[in-house]
Computed example of a mutant assay.
Amino acid sequence: MTDPAATQIVFLLFPGITQLDFTAPAQALCRMPGALLAGAAKSLDPIATDSGFSILPTHDFASSPQADILCIPGGHGVAEALHDAATIDFIARQAAGATWVTSVCTGAFLLGRAGLLTGKRATTHWGYTHLLPLVGATYEHARIVEDGTIVTSGGVTSGLDFALTLIASIRGDAAAQAIQLAIEYDPAPPFVGGHPDHAPAAVTEGLKARVYDGAAARMAAALTAP
């Protein structure tokens, strides 16, 4: 019999996932009292991440448990996943039965393709925020955006902040604070510049030119393709 106090957390896994979008919130959420984690993909084959190594799903879509918390990570593989009917159908079906529907980074666009961000406030990685209206969402300038039971977060490392925020909502501040202490999440970055609001303009523009202008164009093309 399933423990009534348990919270089933399901992460979508897909080729080209940004591993920290998945592993950072998973590391915090797995420590929440009653948490049960699953990583669901189209098949049980290894999933290639953006970091040069692969991860193994625990379930395929057919065998995945129903999520109480559904989490959709991002990554450069999102543009391809947007056109995968089985993936979008899985998100929509899981979201219909979930208490919380969440995303990290560009995972927001998969929520949007499944019709879950229409009329919602949302955020994503700073390089893609201007594309949120393409999935019916209104961009809110924040690291974490809660609109009812839908929670979206910014790029990559924001997944850890999102997880702790969600744990506090579900199990209380003390539980979230204990987990933050347990994983020694006490950030002291060597530079103030993890967002364009704070980074030197030359660094931001250089990174956009090298990576994010092209990546955002590919995402826009994927979102507007028939």
Rank of each mutant, 00 (worst) to 15 (best):
L20D: 01
P46A: 00
G39P: 02
G75M: 12
C30V: 12
Q66I: 09
L37F: 08
P57N: 14
L29W: 02
V78L: 14
S51T: 11
S63E: 09
T87C: 08
D50C: 10
D50R: 02
P33Y: 01
P57H: 14
P73V: 12
C30F: 02
F22R: 01
L44V: 09
L29Q: 07
G74F: 13
P73I: 15
G39Y: 10
F61A: 01
H59I: 10
G75H: 08
T49N: 06
S51I: 07
L29V: 05
S51F: 05
L82R: 05
A67P: 01
A41V: 10
V78M: 14
P57M: 15
A38W: 07
Q19G: 00
F14N: 00
D68V: 15
H59T: 05
L12F: 02
T23A: 11
H59E: 11
L44D: 09
A62Q: 13
I69L: 13
G16K: 00
K42Q: 12
F22W: 06
L36S: 10
H76G: 15
P15R: 00
L12Q: 00
Q66M: 09
G52H: 03
I55V: 13
V78P: 13
D45V: 05
D89S: 14
I72H: 01
L44Q: 10
L82A: 10
T87P: 06
I17P: 00
A86Y: 10
I72W: 04
A41Q: 06
P73L: 13
K42M: 11
I72D: 03
Q27I: 09
S43K: 02
L13V: 08
A67M: 08
L37Q: 05
H76P: 14
S51C: 11
A40N: 04
I55S: 04
A81N: 01
L37N: 06
A81C: 11
A85S: 13
A81S: 13
P25M: 11
I72A: 04
S51K: 06
I88F: 04
L37G: 04
T49Y: 04
S43D: 10
L29S: 05
I47V: 14
L13F: 09
G34I: 13
S54H: 08
A41L: 10
D60L: 10
H59G: 01
S54D: 13
S51L: 14
S54I: 05
D68K: 07
D21R: 00
T58L: 13
M32R: 05
D60T: 07
D84H: 04
L56M: 13
I72N: 02
Q19P: 02
Q66R: 08
D60G: 03
G16L: 07
H76Y: 15
P25A: 14
F90D: 01
A38V: 06
A67C: 09
C30M: 11
A24Y: 02
T49V: 08
S64P: 01
A38D: 07
P65V: 14
G39Q: 07
L37M: 15
H76A: 15
A26W: 02
L56K: 11
A35P: 09
G16R: 00
P46D: 02
P25H: 09
A28I: 03
